[in-house]
Amino acid sequence: MSMKDTIASKLTAEFSPKLLEVIDESHLHAGHSGWREGGETHFRIRIVSTAFQNQNRVAVHRMINKALSEELEQRVHALAIDARAE
């Protein structure tokens, strides 16, 4: 399974989003810190979920980072997050 699919699967299981986009932006960071041959190091996610209601931006980012902690420790170098409550 690709890292993009792993991220999508974990976020879907954790937050049951109404909208989810996982975009691999690794090619934009070639040669930069954290980039590796083969990509799958830099991602942007757009997610809309009722799980984020009554949460501030920092809390939502922490929730997402916790759900993806294994990926962030192992392979993912950067994660840009656009998260909204439904």
Rank of each mutant, 00 (worst) to 15 (best):
M1I: 10
M1C: 05
M1K: 13
S2K: 14
M3D: 04
M3G: 05
M3V: 15
M3Y: 08
K4I: 11
K4M: 12
K4H: 11
T6E: 10
T6L: 09
T6R: 14
T6F: 03
I7H: 11
A8L: 06
A8T: 15
A8V: 11
S9N: 15
S9C: 06
K10C: 07
K10D: 12
K10A: 12
L11R: 08
L11P: 08
T12Q: 12
T12S: 15
T12M: 11
A13R: 14
A13W: 07
E14V: 03
F15A: 12
F15T: 15
F15Y: 11
S16V: 08
L19Y: 12
L19Q: 10
L19R: 15
L20S: 03
L20P: 01
E21H: 07
E21I: 05
E21S: 02
V22N: 11
V22K: 13
D24M: 00
D24E: 02
D24L: 04
E25Q: 13
H29K: 09
A30K: 08
A30E: 07
G31F: 01
H32K: 14
H32L: 10
S33Q: 09
S33W: 06
S33A: 08
G34L: 00
W35S: 13
W35Y: 15
R36W: 04
E37K: 15
E40Q: 10
E40R: 02
T41C: 07
H42Q: 06
H42R: 03
F43H: 12
F43Y: 14
F43Q: 10
R44K: 13
R44F: 07
I45D: 06
R46C: 10
R46W: 00
R46G: 10
I47E: 00
S49Y: 00
S49P: 04
A51D: 05
F52R: 02
Q53E: 12
Q53D: 09
Q53C: 07
N54A: 14
N54I: 00
Q55H: 05
N56Y: 00
R57M: 02
R57S: 06
V58M: 11
V58H: 01
A59I: 07
A59F: 03
V60T: 12
H61D: 11
H61G: 11
R62G: 05
R62W: 02
R62V: 09
R62Y: 00
M63I: 06
M63A: 11
I64H: 01
I64E: 02
N65L: 00
K66F: 09
A67N: 04
A67K: 04
A67Q: 05
A67P: 02
S69C: 01
S69G: 05
E70D: 14
E70N: 13
E71R: 05
E73R: 09
E73M: 08
E73V: 05
Q74L: 15
Q74D: 15
Q74N: 15
Q74P: 05
Q74G: 12
R75E: 15
R75W: 11
R75D: 14
A78C: 13
L79H: 08
L79Q: 12
A80I: 07
A80H: 06
A80T: 12
D82K: 10
D82Q: 10
D82R: 07
D82Y: 07
A83N: 00
A85D: 06
A85V: 05
E86H: 12
E86V: 15
E86C: 14
E86F: 13
